[in-house]
Amino acid sequence: MRRLPVYFLLDTSGSMFGEPIQALNNALSGMINTLRSDPQALDSLWISIITYDRAVTEIVPLTELVSFQLPEITCPQSGPTNTGAGLDFVIQKVKVDLIKGSATEKGDWKPLLFVFTDGKPSDIQLYREKIPEIKALNFGAVVGCAAGQMADDAILKELTDNVVHLDSADSSTLKQFFKWVSDTIEQGNKSQGTGETMTLPPPPSEITVII
């Protein structure tokens, strides 16, 4: 069975400390449970969780959904948002992780990337340098999520046309967002299997799509 690799690049900078990081953990756990109820996802889905604050950390390397275990994600009480370093890490991982097709076997489906932030990059120059490299990797979809009033939609729009904004990073809003993410992943599974271009499902009312 061909793999559908899905990468999550999650902001764990100081502003996420407290309720937001707890809400993020709960929402991710709910998303994994939802995906596990989809037989197609169980067959093909592989997930990687990467966080970024002052440092970039691979919380879970690319792992098949069947055996995926989500550890508790923590964050420092203060510190920068090194999104550019996070993108650089994703680029290196995708280059190593992805199985390319050959004459004898089919490679992975185009990977998906979800970038979540409640702020803006502290390393904006590196962030902008990495955008062309991300685009060159030919993801099936890159989705940016800006959560809360401090998150910068315009900077995420430089990375991808698919940007959504959440009014807050509270528990109910993040739960709705990651439910939509699971719908998006399931859509990616189905569309890539038919060779169609992937289209994102309509988001719930808590999520604003940035045009």
Rank of each mutant, 00 (worst) to 15 (best):
N33S: 14
G86C: 09
A103T: 14
Q176M: 07
L113K: 11
P20K: 13
R54L: 12
L166S: 04
T74V: 13
C145Q: 05
V163Q: 13
P132L: 01
D153Q: 06
M198P: 05
F89T: 14
Q125N: 04
D153W: 01
L98K: 09
Q69F: 13
L9R: 05
E64I: 07
V209R: 15
P39C: 06
V6A: 13
V163P: 09
K100L: 10
A146C: 04
P39G: 07
F68I: 12
E19W: 01
A169Q: 00
G140D: 04
K179F: 11
M150C: 00
K106H: 06
K100C: 02
P111F: 12
V56S: 11
P5A: 11
T194W: 10
V142S: 10
N189P: 00
W180H: 12
A147G: 02
G195A: 14
G79N: 09
C75T: 09
N26I: 01
K190F: 09
V90E: 00
N138H: 15
G84F: 11
C145G: 01
A141F: 01
R3Q: 07
A151W: 14
I124N: 06
T173E: 08
F8W: 15
G84H: 09
R2S: 04
P61R: 15
T63H: 08
K157I: 01
F8C: 13
F139W: 03
A103V: 13
N33F: 06
E58H: 02
F8N: 11
E158C: 01
Y52T: 09
E206Y: 06
S102V: 04
F17Q: 00
K110H: 06
E19T: 08
F89C: 12
I32V: 15
P80H: 08
E196D: 15
